[in-house]
Design a binder for these strands. Structure first.
Lengths: 152, 152
DNA sequence: ATTGAAATCATTAGCGA
DNA sequence: TCGCTAATGATTTCAAT
């Protein structure tokens, strides 16, 4: 079922689970006026089709000690080093996301650390210790006024 | 319980729910060799403390028709317009995230659209239609080789 | 998409270390 | 305080329709 097209019921189920992944299928069924078994069947189908890829709790990063988020533009000395650099970046748990983009950077990273001091250490000890990293440009996030999911 | 400090059991519970928010508390209990009631109690406590803020399913954006992700650096004509611009950005469902950062941009946005054509339309019809937007710099994401959560 | 039934789970309260 | 057990009502899950 690689090219299963969702219908409006699927869409409503996705919205409900996007808002609260742990809510019971029966609750969703009652909201949508269908049987519990139907929700179950649809969710399974969307899982099999690769539309639903998993679920996770959302946590407050600050309460877990990761108070500082940084976006970072990276320049490499040569584009051929990309896969080697990525392999290295994967070993740094501070690197949450890496984007290969058009525009003036080789890579853009999203990084989470405990503090500015930790970020400084991360930069000089880890990131700039990679030979192929030519330069970096840091955008330290002071606030994230918008954070939401794609409109389903 | 605003300053509740988590212990190693909490940490393991968070890891488990981060990997799969819908797995049953009893399953987690068996993995961690404690009772189901204990998991329940801990989760409730972490919710009350604001450590767990919710849960959501993860979906494949491409399968839902949002094939193009763009990071965008925004320059405003004047910093005082920030709140007005943010209010406007909130009305655009294409804007998933907005970061107020140090460095050369007033704001950095993460945007999801169906196609490059849609992105072009979004840029000229919506974003650049805001008076206070001076200029934009687009970083179109061709690949996202790293995507993970903070290390708990 | 529904039903119905068996297995499993969530949730709470009270007990004990 | 923290984790455990026990009990009940709710949910999940699956097969048949």
């Amino acid at each position: 079922m690689e090219n299963y097209q969702i219908d409006s019921l699927d869409r409503e189920i996705l919205k409900a689970l996007q808002a609260d992944a742990r809510q019971s299928y029966l609750d969703i069924a009652r909201q949508l006026d269908v049987s519990g078994g139907t929700i179950h069947q649809r969710v399974n189908r969307m899982r099999a089709a690769g539309i639903i890829t998993g679920s996770k709790i959302t946590v407050d990063a600050k309460r877990l000690g990761h108070g500082v988020t940084v976006l970072l533009g990276l320049h490499l000395t040569n584009a051929k080093a990309m896969s080697k650099v990525l392999a290295k970046l994967e070993t740094f748990p501070e690197v949450l996301e890496a984007y290969y983009t058009t525009g003036g950077f080789s890579l853009i990273l999203k990084i989470a650390v405990r503090s500015i001091e930790d970020y400084h250490q991360f930069l000089i000890r880890k990131l700039q210790a990679i030979d192929e990293v030519q330069s970096t440009e840091s955008f330290i996030c002071m606030d994230q006024p918008i954070n939401r999911d794609i409109e389903i």
